[in-house]
């Protein structure tokens, strides 16, 4: 998914910031989840403190058993499992969003950290950069 050599440029003077990518949209209906994931993967090359938050319909991005053959879109859900290989291991899921949609951790295709609303709020507040799609 890397598209140009400068994407790999990590010479940023050693600054490490907390980046949180906030996902609030379901996959496939719009492109935000897929293109959001592309930024997350690129960010891994910059050696920042990267996390992802899944709130509201964003939790549907992690649902097991996605099969996109019949809609002829790329099933990008396996990419979430590959994030670990990029040292992106902080996947925060809001408990209230899961529950409101009748989902549990067992429905998700990757290991996540479930936070309640107060914990998620605190986590968001401490970030340097929040990028939402």
């Amino acid at each position: 998914m890397f598209t140009s050599s400068e994407d790999m440029d990590t010479d940023e003077g050693g600054v490490i910031k907390q980046f949180m990518f906030v996902n609030r949209k379901a996959p496939y209906g719009t492109i935000y989840a897929l293109e959001g994931l592309e930024v997350v993967l690129i960010s891994a090359a910059f050696e920042q403190d990267v996390s992802m938050a899944f709130i509201d319909d964003g939790v549907y991005e992690l649902k097991k058993a996605q099969d996109t053959k019949a809609i002829e879109q790329k099933n990008f859900s396996p990419t979430y499992r590959a994030l670990e290989g990029y040292d992106i291991e902080k996947l925060y899921v809001e408990k209230e969003s899961l529950e409101a949609r009748g989902l549990t951790e067992a429905d998700l295709l990757v290991d996540v950290i479930v936070l309640d609303r107060a914990e998620m709020a605190a986590k968001m507040a401490e970030q340097d950069v929040l990028i939402s799609f």
Binding site: R117, A121, A122, M124
Partner: peptide
């Protein structure tokens, strides 16, 4: 949409 509701739920 629920954006404002979610925002108020998660604003410290």
């Amino acid at each position: 949409r629920n954006s404002l509701e979610s925002c108020l739920r998660l604003a410290t």
